[in-house]
């Protein structure tokens, strides 16, 4: 563990990513009390107001304060990212472990299901699921969670296949341990590293996917302060007010970039073999 922290600390980019994520978390937590304006309050006087003292990042076409909406948007994005990545992590790990451990028909059935889900471009699959479920924050989490489940299943399956041959698993089996006990107590703790890395990266993908779905009008509720909705509303006003489209996009990019550099940093720290190749 000490070695992990030492390696992680040496990666300045990853540390910077962690700091930015912490900053976003603070913004999100403090949004209800610290946001300078009500994110839903419209004002005819502030329509497309330029960035300045009253509206630090300007106002949108409805006179709503962009900074306040970005703060509340951070709550939404982080929540969607965490829950969607969590759904994918739990469902994918469970399916992957079962497929890898039991093999035979369990593996054949689960792997084919994953292959089929993998056979649709992620955003299209999410779009179709959202078309079925209808736009809402909970549905976005479910849709994105389903889309990213196969990647976790593949990682968990591959890791389980290698760990189940280990001597300590044989020992547990020969002592009469049941399959579920072996999976939970012996295999899961030994396959967590790649899953942690993938969770961080999926967090980034989930934030991007939520923004994309909301941008297309098939994401969260239409009045929610989602960064994707803000960007969609802003793009039609860019010629007169660049800030309406630029700041939400910056917020998305910075958040996704931070999770990506954190994921890379974790991978380097957890797996020094990959670090040497820079993969």
């Amino acid at each position: 563990m000490k070695e992990f922290f030492r390696r992680f600390r040496r990666n300045r980019l990853a540390v910077a990513g962690l700091v930015v994520i912490a900053f976003y978390v603070v913004l999100a937590v403090l949004a209800p009390v610290a946001a300078p304006h009500d994110p839903y309050a419209m004002s005819a006087d502030a329509m497309l107001a330029e960035p300045g003292r009253d509206h630090w990042l300007g106002a949108d076409p409805f006179g709503r304060d962009i900074f306040s909406r970005l703060m509340h948007g951070a709550r939404l994005s982080l929540m969607v990212g965490a829950i969607a990545a969590g759904i994918a992590l739990i469902a994918g790990t469970l399916m992957g472990m079962l497929a890898g451990y039991f093999g035979r028909w369990v593996d054949a059935v689960l792997s084919r299901i994953m292959d089929i889900l993998f056979s649709f471009p992620d955003i299209l699959l999410a779009l179709v699921i959202m078309a079925i479920l209808g736009p809402s924050t909970v549905n976005v989490m479910i849709a994105i969670g389903i889309v990213y489940t196969p990647i976790f299943a593949r990682i968990a399956r591959a890791s389980t296949l290698s760990v189940k041959e280990a001597a300590f698993v044989d020992a547990a089996r020969s002592m009469g341990a049941r399959s579920m006990h072996i999976l939970w107590r012996h295999i899961l703790p030994n396959i967590t590293a790649p899953l942690i890395i993938q969770t961080t990266l999926s967090f980034a993908f989930a934030i991007l996917a939520e923004a994309a779905l909301s941008f297309l009008g098939l994401g969260v509720e239409p009045d929610a302060p989602s960064w994707g909705i803000m960007l969609n509303e802003g793009k039609n006003w860019m010629e007169h007010a660049w800030w309406v489209a630029v700041f939400p996009g910056l917020a998305i990019t910075l958040a996704v970039l931070s999770f990506n550099v954190l994921g890379d940093g974790l991978r380097d720290a957890l797996d020094p073999k990959l670090r040497s190749s820079g993969a």
């Binding site: 980034a204 923004a211 994309a212 941008f215 960007l231 793009k235 489209a245 996704v256 970039l257």
Partner: peptide
């Protein structure tokens, strides 16, 4: 590059 949303890059 992998962090910038394509729809924002397009907008810019």
């Amino acid at each position: 590059g992998i962090s910038v949303p394509g729809f924002w890059l397009g907008t810019l």
